[in-house]
């Protein structure tokens, strides 16, 4: 897994590099858009961490040219400005996530992992969420490498949450995905299934939060 950091501040870049090295992820670094473009032409990268405020051409321009070339590489945008307008336009231009400076390295790492996970989910059957591993083909779950038995409903529920990490799922959303039209269901049934799943997940880093009045949100706390 290779990541490219495009950041002109040396101190910040070095710190990032060191942090990600310690985590076991090599991090290449470019200081400008031009440098980034030449680096990108040489090697394959799994993720771009892109600062917007760069000397010369801005990060937006790089993002724009990448997307216009059809590149689907995940991009996490770093922005110094607190203006939400920046974030929105970054997402509009094809960024996958954003983070406002100053940021916590742990947060940066978590976002990167989430992006990589989303990317790999399509490719491989084995998905890692913190200490939880899910085998899409076998429909089996392991926590800390210990297999956990789940009922079919719970498996369905787990898959649904894993596919919608950090998004709110209402009870209706869940019912529509889990039950066909002719299957009778009660909100109670969903809650019971959820309670059981939560018990099974107690030791994992996957948390399913209830938001009263709104629904449920799954988050990997790694």
């Amino acid at each position: 897994m290779r990541m490219l950091l495009i950041e002109d501040n040396n101190t910040l870049a070095d710190a990032c590099r060191e942090y990600f090295c310690n985590l076991g992820h090599p991090l290449d670094r470019a200081g400008s858009v031009e440098e980034a473009e030449s680096t990108l032409s040489f090697g394959d990268f799994d993720l771009l961490i892109l600062d917007i405020n760069l000397p010369g051409r801005s990060g937006y321009q790089l993002l724009q040219s990448l997307r216009s070339q059809g590149s689907k590489i995940p991009v996490l945008v770093l922005t110094a400005r607190a203006e939400v307008d920046d974030r929105v336009s970054a997402l509009d231009l094809g960024a996958d996530d954003y983070l406002v400076k100053p940021f916590d390295f742990r947060e940066l790492a978590a976002r990167c992992r989430a992006l990589l996970r989303r990317e790999r989910g399509d490719a491989s059957n084995l998905m890692q969420y913190g200490n939880l591993t899910y085998d899409l083909a076998a429909q089996s779950m392991r926590i800390n490498d210990q297999p956990i038995d789940l009922r079919p409903r719970e498996i369905q529920l787990l898959e649904l949450f894993l596919k919608n990490l950090d998004r709110v799922l209402t009870k209706d959303d869940i019912a529509n995905r889990l039950y066909t039209f002719n299957e009778a269901y009660t909100p109670n049934a969903i809650e019971q299934a959820l309670t059981r799943l939560r018990k099974q997940l107690a030791a994992s880093t996957l948390i399913i939060k209830t938001i009263r009045g709104l629904g449920y949100l799954a988050h990997v706390n790694d």
């Binding site: 998004r167 709110v168 939060k209 009263r212 709104l214 949100l217 988050h219 706390n221």
Partner: peptide, 23 residues
Amino acid sequence: LKQILTECVRDHAHSDIEFGYHC
């Protein structure tokens, strides 16, 4: 409000805080 709450819940998912919403 739903967007903001979702972001907030995500950021504090690891805590024991319970969130609720009504309109």
